[in-house]
Simulated scan of single mutants.
Amino acid sequence: MRHAEEVTFGGSALDRAAELRGDIPALAAALLASDTRTILMWQGKPLVSGDEGAQELVRLPLDHPVLAEARAEPILLGREDGAARFAHDISNWQPEGQDLGQLGGFSDLSEQVHPSLAPGQRFAELRRVMTGLSPRDAELAASAKAILSWHSRHGFCACCGAASDIASAGWQRVCPACGAHHFPRTDPVVIMLILRGNSVLLGRSPGWPKGMYSCLAGFVEPGEAIEAAVRREVFEEAGVQVGAVSYLASQPWPFPASLMIGCRGEALSDKIVIDPVEIEEARWVSREELAVAFAGQHPEILPARNGAIAHFLLRNWLADTLD
């Protein structure tokens, strides 16, 4: 697919500096360098500045006083123009006088302002600001969110149950009791542009905003090929048999840590029989209908969230730029 890497979080050629992760002297030097900066996260939200739709990811110097609140050692994200970039997490900070009930929700509009930070700098839900970030800022924010989320969920050894330690600049955990090494987890998910003639198969899950439809998706199971997962998920959710399957694009999706594998599939029938446990509704939508929905004028259909790979695939299908 010609435009595959233009998807949100699709990459910005960040130098991930993997060779530094086990180099203790080099890491120590990077932590002392004047041009080193860190990405600050709170409850999975990156610190950003700028106006709505044109946000920038804030990069703080390592002597900033707010970093004293970090609950663990920093994670090395990579290098920009030769300078190291880390991530710090201050999720233990408790904002005063704010209802935090929206945190982690589908439409979290809340923003949090730390008193030690500059005016205009605030923590914002990544799903809300992702399309306003540059490709580099989006990649750094997604990487920081995903790796810190993994650490927050995997503090204990899966082999013996003992508390594990951060190692390799944040890209491993090592168990001091049994010596097991644990690595960040990414869950593969297939997301499918299922076509039949001039129509695409869309569905919606319970709890989504009213009228929102998207491509069908599901996790790849152990021992399963991507193509097989596409066919199985579409049949399980919508009762539609799929023939030929081809790869289109992928998207790292840090909510909390998935790799969305975008595929195109050719439906062998148009009869839909949904599994109500899996989805709430599925329907065939013509190219003309989808164009109206993307224009915001369809009475029943809202397209997938801008920034998600489903929106990207559907938009490219409309523009005939999948190949």
Rank of each mutant, 00 (worst) to 15 (best):
36 T>D: 00
286 S>A: 01
58 V>F: 10
287 R>E: 11
44 G>Y: 10
70 A>E: 07
279 I>S: 05
278 E>N: 13
147 I>A: 01
164 S>R: 15
128 R>E: 11
283 R>E: 02
31 L>V: 02
266 E>I: 10
262 G>C: 06
51 D>R: 15
231 R>M: 08
219 F>N: 11
74 P>M: 03
133 L>P: 04
80 E>K: 03
274 I>S: 05
119 P>L: 10
48 V>A: 10
279 I>Y: 06
23 D>R: 08
130 M>C: 10
160 C>E: 14
62 L>S: 06
16 R>H: 09
303 P>R: 01
8 T>Q: 02
13 A>V: 12
302 L>G: 02
173 R>W: 11
239 G>I: 08
101 G>P: 09
257 A>W: 08
280 E>V: 04
221 E>G: 11
12 S>K: 02
259 L>Q: 13
149 S>C: 08
214 S>G: 14
209 P>A: 03
150 W>K: 11
64 H>W: 12
204 R>H: 02
75 I>P: 00
109 L>V: 09
296 G>A: 06
311 H>Y: 13
208 W>Q: 11
45 K>H: 12
167 A>C: 07
303 P>S: 00
18 A>R: 05
16 R>S: 03
62 L>E: 00
144 A>W: 01
138 A>V: 07
100 L>P: 04
1 M>N: 06
25 P>L: 08
121 Q>W: 14
29 A>I: 05
200 V>Q: 05
71 R>L: 07
303 P>C: 03
290 L>N: 03
30 A>D: 02
174 V>Y: 15
59 R>L: 12
139 E>A: 01
172 Q>S: 13
139 E>C: 00
22 G>Y: 04
110 S>N: 13
113 V>R: 13
115 P>Q: 07
193 L>Y: 08
146 A>F: 02
321 T>G: 06
214 S>T: 09
191 I>K: 08
278 E>M: 14
156 F>D: 09
103 L>D: 12
21 R>T: 04
238 A>W: 10
17 A>G: 14
226 I>F: 13
262 G>S: 03
191 I>W: 07
168 S>E: 13
230 V>N: 06
197 G>K: 03
58 V>E: 08
147 I>D: 05
118 A>I: 11
197 G>W: 14
103 L>T: 09
68 A>K: 06
316 N>A: 02
239 G>A: 10
5 E>A: 13
301 I>T: 05
253 W>S: 14
72 A>G: 12
143 S>L: 14
27 L>I: 07
19 E>V: 12
211 G>P: 13
150 W>T: 10
67 L>S: 03
78 G>F: 05
289 E>K: 04
177 A>P: 15
124 A>N: 00
43 Q>R: 15
16 R>C: 01
219 F>L: 09
133 L>I: 05
229 A>S: 14
150 W>M: 07
162 A>T: 15
314 L>M: 13
32 L>I: 05
39 I>V: 15
171 W>D: 05
220 V>D: 01
106 F>P: 04
247 Y>L: 09
98 Q>L: 12
242 V>T: 08
91 S>D: 15
87 A>Y: 04
212 M>H: 04
173 R>C: 05
141 A>W: 00
176 P>K: 10
255 F>M: 12
97 G>V: 01
273 V>T: 13
88 H>A: 08
162 A>V: 10
123 F>K: 02
236 E>T: 12
